[in-house]
Computed example of a mutant assay.
Amino acid sequence: MSLANVIVVGNEKGGAGKSTIAIHLVTGLLHAGARVSLLDLDLRQQSVGHFFAHRRAWLAAAGATAPMPVEHGLGSEGRTLAQAADEEVLARFEESFGKSREGADFLVIDTPGGDTAVSRSAHGRADLIVTPMNDSFVDFDMLGLVDPVTLDLKRPSLYSETVWNSRKTRAAADGQSIDWVVLRNRLAPTEARNRRRLDERVQALSRRVGFRVGPGLRDRVIYRELFPFGLTVADLSPGIRPVAMSLQHVAARQELRALMGALGLPGAEGGEAIAAQ
């Protein structure tokens, strides 16, 4: 039986948009016809798990259909498990990870905003690590440290070291490499004053530690509007339209397609059909 390609959405800084990226990757892959498994390792907040619970409820109430991933939780305890010892959480993860890869094309893992043993274990199993980063030196601080006077890049920071160690773990385990993509996420509609300076440091760090830079999702109202329904712009159709459509929704769909394309994932095609709906 073939095993799923593992996509880990990670960043040790909270509020970078990991869960938003994860749910859009899942729905984008589903609408591309892929079989998708899902693991939500943010045991305390469980935003991705809540999103798909909302999705089931809204679809049932609306009498509509949309593709769903196969969810593999770490147990029914939810937030109680978040207080458990690392050994217990890791054991649950090992069991769920093995099951979730079977019979799927992709396994998407959402990780918590912090350094945990289970998050490190997931990173070491990844084929692709996707790291959203807000357009700010505050977020960049988790990836690289800059000189406070010259703003020159000094060295990689905490999360870059986590990914570096994960790559070594994966290479030692099975000789495979991990692709790493940093997404410039939640860009404001207007050009930020410090964006060029930040771009230069991101590019410099990418050459130093070996990641690709891709487009994320802009800070659009539509992403927030659709979340409580458990829907994304990939789901919108004549039969699924919980909010009024606008040209901004078309732009958001094109943005999602660009994201999927930058990651080399199915779902980057079909722009004309999307725009026509």
Rank of each mutant, 00 (worst) to 15 (best):
F93C: 09
D40E: 03
P189W: 12
I7M: 04
G73W: 06
V202A: 12
L247E: 14
H31N: 11
G33A: 07
L41C: 06
A117P: 15
H31A: 04
R195M: 09
P69N: 00
E102Y: 00
G17L: 01
E87P: 00
A171L: 14
T111P: 02
V36C: 01
A62G: 11
T169C: 03
V89W: 02
V146T: 15
L25F: 00
G214R: 11
D174C: 06
A16S: 14
V138Y: 14
V48W: 01
V8K: 02
P156H: 05
R257Y: 06
A126E: 09
S160Y: 08
R195G: 11
Q46M: 08
R208Y: 12
S246W: 06
D141H: 10
K99T: 02
R170F: 05
R184L: 13
M1G: 11
E95W: 13
V36L: 04
Q254I: 05
A4Y: 00
F52E: 02
G113I: 05
F211Q: 05
S100F: 02
E272Q: 13
N185G: 08
E71H: 07
G78Q: 04
D235Q: 02
P148Q: 07
L256E: 15
R44G: 06
E88F: 12
A4W: 04
G230C: 08
V209S: 03
A22G: 07
L183F: 02
L41W: 00
E95H: 13
E102N: 01
I222K: 01
G63V: 08
R212S: 13
S19E: 11
E95T: 13
F140W: 09
P156I: 07
S119F: 09
A188P: 00
S2V: 11
R155H: 11
T131H: 08
L158I: 13
L25V: 05
G216D: 11
S177D: 14
D42M: 00
D115G: 10
W180R: 05
A60G: 10
N194V: 15
M142S: 15
F93H: 07
A104P: 01
L256V: 10
A60D: 12
L107P: 05
S157M: 04
A62H: 11
P189Y: 11
I21Y: 05
G78A: 06
G144V: 05
I23L: 13
L145T: 14
A117L: 10
N5I: 04
D86R: 12
A62P: 07
G270F: 00
A82N: 09
S2R: 09
L145D: 11
F51T: 06
R208A: 13
L143R: 14
E87F: 05
T27K: 10
V6A: 00
D199Q: 15
D135H: 07
G14Q: 02
I178P: 03
S19L: 10
V118Y: 07
A251C: 10
